Amino acid sequence: MHITSLSASPSERSRSAWLTQFALTRLESRVTRYDDILVRRLPAAALLAADVQDPEIAAAVQAVERADLVVVGTPIFKAAYSGLLKVFLDLLPPDALRDKLVLPLATGGSPAHLLALDYALKPVLSALGARHLLDGVFATDAQLRRHEAGGFVPEPDLIARLDRALAPLASRTPRMPARPEPALSC
């Protein structure tokens, strides 16, 4: 399975980026190819100018288009997904997520932001053609405590919810590469 992740936090030490990477570790046995897009590392001028001809922007868009599963991780700010994510999603073609599985992940300071997944993020993913949305996973800061050695420690309930969201992938047959056309003999 080709997986592309979008980490859309402006922060280097981000709970949402960590949660995205943690979800990917739960899928290691299913991955045949993996592309990790850290939106904050894309060229800002090209991103804001919607310059899809920029090589880094073009490569990121192509990684999304090639994916079987797109994992979208974002912090929730003021009841919505990050502006970085919005700027990147605006660069995608209208049907960029059609026929793909999409796993929305989000983090926020309190459970009050939980509905941002359903009322802010899922509608824009659907507008991009996503019809196969896995259950979204939202984590509060308290469910991802900082670890003194770096990273975060997830609460058992968070791990269980993430595993439930990923469960449909266990029975999914990976897409087989297209078979080459037989050579024609003259």
Rank of each mutant, 00 (worst) to 15 (best):
L38S: 06
D36V: 03
Y34V: 07
V31C: 10
T20W: 05
A46L: 08
L6P: 00
V31N: 01
R30T: 07
R41M: 04
L42S: 04
A17N: 02
S11M: 12
T20F: 00
S7Y: 00
D36S: 12
P10F: 12
S7W: 02
S5A: 14
T20V: 04
R26W: 01
R33V: 05
R13L: 14
A23D: 01
F22T: 09
D35G: 01
A8W: 09
L48K: 03
R15I: 04
T32W: 09
L38A: 11
S16F: 06
A17S: 15
R30S: 10
Q21L: 06
A45M: 07
T25R: 09
I3V: 15
L24A: 00
D35E: 13
A45C: 01
P43R: 10
T32C: 09
L38T: 10
V39M: 02
Q21N: 12
H2Y: 13
R40Y: 07
L19V: 03
R13A: 15
S29Y: 07
L42G: 02
L19M: 02
F22Q: 08
T20K: 04
A46M: 06
S11F: 13
L27P: 03
S11R: 14
S16M: 07
S14M: 08
V39G: 02
L24Q: 13
S9K: 00
D35Y: 06
R13G: 12
I37H: 07
A8G: 15
L6C: 02
L6I: 12
L24M: 09
A17I: 00
T25G: 05
A45L: 10
L48C: 11
S9P: 09
R33W: 13
Q21F: 01
R13V: 11
R33F: 13
D36G: 05
E12S: 13
P10I: 12
T25H: 10
A46V: 05
R33N: 14
A23G: 01
Q21A: 13
S7K: 00
P10M: 11
L6Y: 07
I37E: 06
S5K: 05
D35P: 02
S29T: 14
T25L: 03
L47F: 04
L38K: 00
S11G: 11
R15L: 00
Y34L: 15
L48S: 11
S29R: 10
H2T: 15
S29A: 15
L24T: 00
Q21D: 15
W18K: 07
T25K: 03
